[in-house]
Amino acid sequence: MKSELFEIAGETFTSRLILGTGGLSSLEILDSILKVTSSEIATVAIRRVDPNQKLSIFNILSDNKIKILPNTAGCYSATDAVKLALLARESLDTNWIKLEVIGDDKTLLPDTVELLKAAETLINMDFKVLAYTSTDLIIAKRLMSLGVSAIMPLASPIGSGMGLEHINGLIRIVEEVETVPVIVDAGIGTASDAALAMEIGASAVLVASAITKAVDSIVMAEAIAKATEAGRLAYRAGRIPKQLYAVPSSSSSDMPNL
């Protein structure tokens, strides 16, 4: 089947697997992961410089022509998220930001009240905001009307590997949010979770820990990349409806008299 493009904030991409780089054991394997996934976008966090750092993630991603998507991970208020986004824009020369405003340490669930405030401020400052959010459709609609560039509902808590915990919430968002891509973010645990997210119609998935913390990150990266593609194909193909009882696949007419 012909590969299709998808668009975020006016830029087009082929790969629907966005790589989260959190949890990488070393930067040395990042090159190999990027090659097996063919990902075109990768997230980074913004932190104090490590003066002893030898390899730079910025250089590795730039050399591989990867679109760098900085995040505001670690921020617990709209004010902090806006400040970190400004530092990200200054350092990486991009107006894209994956906006995360965290509610608490234990769940890392998004604080959607602060998220809406930060999204509005950043959009007014010409940022392209990709908003990490809950599976609450009304919040997704509010974000959409503010003018975000993508809605990124979580599958389950960050790093939990619990898969699509609130799948019906995700389906509602995918069906109701038509003007911007819906990218399922956080909680993907393995390949089948990525496939399922794509099968319900997500535009893309963002996967970090499932790849970076797998026993073999490179093989898992390949598995999740293939699952993402397979899930998208299945969505485009149109699955059969689920039914409680059997529907014969062999004809019931012209049965011989036995």
């Binding site: 780089t21 959190g22 980074v44 932190r47 410089v49 993630i57 910025f58």
Partner: peptide, 10 residues
Amino acid sequence: IELISATQGG
């Protein structure tokens, strides 16, 4: 002074 750069994350 805060001197920042991109690092693994997200």
